[in-house]
Design a protein around this nucleic acid. Structure first.
Lengths: 342, 342
DNA sequence: CTGAAAGCGCTAACAC
DNA sequence: GTGTTAGCGCTTTCAG
């Protein structure tokens, strides 16, 4: 027994050693080896000892393909992410990882398929049954081809989802959150409030847009279409771009509700570059509460989403689904975090 | 033939359809089906047509486990990442993805194993041969158990590597880059320059540290140990923490070289919170040139790493290795980007 | 050009 | 408690 426990070293030269080699070495049948490896059936202490010794000596590791073939599962989960440079997604993924790993699953990250072409390796992994299930953060418009199969696939949505589809999802109430954000701006006396929106093929983008309008309506403010800008992505640069357009207006807004912190940060950058002070000249509230939002200057007033917990919840739901259960969709709490930008 | 081409829909009820179902439907043997699927041997146009029709009609997709079992490969590559919330890593991963995908591979993202425990699912995936190869951005100290097997594993390092190990890697010249950064500060008249370092189990952290010292030495500046702070991580918060310590010094520095943009941003935040102006009272140069660095206020003066290209290069090297080649390590170019913070 | 058949490594009945 | 054996779905000789 080695002094410090370490990964047994498998045969790296020649072919990898198989279960039969272990069986031979231990003087038992392959079935017995399988039993001790999987603890699937009782095995006498004596034989178990011999098998374990053989496994250790040979550095045996079971072949995942053979195992997958017979068991019909891989213990691999696919996480579909629109853009993993966006901190919202990376935090969420961390949440997924944390629960999934405890249950012996690993995650495969897939870029969400877009219109770029017919090659959709991630979806292949689904249909091929290489992965046991999917957690999707992607927009379902891009996932069109498989929508009809959704009820039959072990699939869970996170943040994004399809209304009334029965597809289980973990999310916050985007509409209410947006309403809260805009209401806050109204309470602070703002009357010309712009919406810096995102690609509305995303449900969350549509819902936040709706929440924005609802807040205005509730305050009897007229909705000025000029004040609604939809950015083409959530990178900082898109925020700057949209903010520039807002500034060019004859009557620019006194406040902006951005549907993503990255967009908000880009907008603030553009405003300051144009000589505007935030929040004095123009107030900005963001959405997500990414780690950067409290470090950025001015620190962002934003809607906090429980990103990590959202991922964890989705993961738990998928695990439940895989175990044959019928997980309930969950709506987690958001919160307005007031800092400096508004 | 459907109007719009879409993913063939596999049998989702009951068992998935197998190659023999296709063979039966097409009136051929499974061997022939295999041949047309893989284009491995010539098949008459007529039979090929029938097989293809059957595949389409049934929505057949080959079972990746069975295929992996016989072929001994999965077309899955593992990318080991220390922290995928760090933009440096996410950009790099994008680079990996872009080349790998074109070659029919998918990537599995693995959290790099740390000392947290013996459970190392990512490494298991390697030893189990579930993945065909690995691109590691992780620190090799944490990878200790497998170092001895390295020469035999299809493994490529990115940014991080082991000197003189023969392990192929794609990286920049961290030492020279750090030297460039500090030299710039010296040229601007700074004499008390602090190092905001990172966990030195990372080679890049050690090399950047070395570069810092080399620059000071070259300018005949004395090395004040008090001015060297090693942060416990690269999150913004660690940068703030370390910067606070620097400020508490009797003779604080007039400039700081941070080995990561996230650290630099955290430091700037701490400085401003303490009433210091950047760069007037204290100059800061970062490292990486993450997207945020040009949006942050003040915009970061930093060393640009070709993140995307680093990932892409590593991916190409791994692919070459898998094809039986002996890829050369590559050192990519860095560049000092002067903006506002120094 | 095509079919029959032998495995790949493993799990899960089914015997004993 | 343990061994034998029949597949899992696929690729690949080997015949023809």
């Amino acid at each position: 027994m080695p002094a410090k426990p370490s990964l047994p070293s498998p045969a790296l030269y020649g072919r990898p050693i198989s279960i039969s080699a272990v069986a031979e070495q231990a003087g038992v049948s392959i079935a017995t080896v399988s039993r001790v490896i999987n603890a699937s059936k009782p095995v006498s202490a004596d034989t178990r000892g011999r098998v374990e010794a053989a496994v250790a000596a040979l550095g045996y590791r079971s072949n995942p393909f053979a195992r997958g073939l017979t068991r019909g599962e891989s213990r691999l989960l696919l996480v579909l992410v629109p853009d993993f440079a966006n901190p919202f997604y990376s935090e969420t993924i961390k949440g997924v990882e944390s629960v999934v790993r405890r249950h012996g699953y690993s995650i495969v990250l897939g870029g969400a398929p877009d219109a770029r072409g017919p090659e959709q390796p991630s979806l292949d992994a689904v249909y091929n049954r290489l992965v046991d299930g999917v957690i999707s953060l992607a927009n379902f418009q891009d996932l069109q081809p498989l929508i009809k199969d959704l009820p039959n696939l072990p699939w869970v949505a996170c943040s994004e989802f399809i209304e009334d589809s029965g597809l289980p999802h973990a999310s916050i109430d985007h509409g209410q959150a947006a309403l809260d954000a805009v209401q806050y701006l109204i309470n602070r006396g703002h009357r010309r409030i712009a919406l810096l929106g995102a690609d509305e093929t995303y449900l969350w983008a549509r819902q936040r847009h709706t929440g924005y309008e609802a807040a205005l309506k509730r305050a009897n403010l007229t909705l000025d279409p000029q004040l609604v800008r939809v950015a083409r992505g959530t990178d900082y640069s898109f925020g700057m771009e949209a903010a520039g357009a807002l500034l060019a207006l004859e009557a620019p807004p006194s406040a902006v509700f951005a549907v993503s912190d990255t967009l908000a940060i880009g907008a603030i950058k553009a405003f300051r570059r144009a000589g505007r002070r935030v929040p004095e000249d123009i107030a900005v509230v963001g959405f997500d509460n990414i780690p950067l939002s409290q470090v950025f200057e001015p620190a962002l007033t934003t809607i906090a989403q429980p990103m990590f917990e959202l991922g964890a919840a989705a993961a738990r739901m998928l695990l439940e689904r895989l175990a044959g259960g019928q997980p309930e969709s969950r709506t987690l709490q958001h919160a307005l975090v007031v800092r400096e930008s508004a």
